[in-house]
Simulated assay, not measured.
Amino acid sequence: MGIGVSVFLLAVGGVLAFAVSDRISGVDLTAVGYILMGAGALGLAITMFFISQRSHTTHTSVTEHRHIDE
């Protein structure tokens, strides 16, 4: 899950939790909103962790040269 998807889940969850007052039989939209916001926040935290790890990673390549005596 990338940053864009995480922010989208946060936004949709916020709208469902705080702005929607309609009722659907058998579905608590406020709870669904909080769940989506939690998933978005968790996804954003995990994504930021992996981006941070990737920026601190170093790569070393080793090239071996052979010298031939004549």
Rank of each mutant, 00 (worst) to 15 (best):
I46D: 13
A39M: 13
V12H: 01
A39S: 10
T47L: 01
I3M: 11
S25K: 12
G13H: 08
A41K: 02
M1S: 08
L42M: 13
G38Q: 02
V20L: 11
I46F: 12
L16D: 01
G2D: 06
I51F: 13
L42C: 09
M37I: 00
D69M: 04
V7I: 14
M48G: 04
H56Q: 11
S6A: 12
A31W: 12
V7S: 05
L16N: 01
T47P: 00
R23Y: 14
L10G: 01
A17V: 00
A11W: 14
V15S: 05
A39C: 09
I46A: 12
A39K: 05
G4P: 00
M48H: 09
T57I: 12
S55N: 06
M37L: 11
S52F: 13
F50Q: 12
G33S: 03
M48Y: 12
R23T: 10
T63S: 11
A39D: 06
G26P: 02
G13P: 01
G4E: 12
S21G: 05
G40K: 03
G38E: 04
G14T: 04
I68Y: 15
G38C: 03
M48E: 10
I51L: 13
S61Q: 14
Q53K: 10
A45R: 03
V62M: 11
V32N: 05
F49T: 04
D69P: 02
M48L: 12
M37H: 03
A11D: 07
V32H: 02
R66A: 10
L16Y: 07
F18Y: 14
G43E: 02
G4K: 10
T47E: 11
V7G: 01
V62Y: 15
S25H: 10
L29C: 02
G40H: 08
R66E: 12
L29T: 01
Y34N: 06
H65N: 07
A31T: 09
S6T: 01
S55C: 02
D28L: 04
E64H: 11
I46K: 12
D28A: 04
I35N: 06
E64I: 10
M48V: 05
A41P: 00
F49R: 08
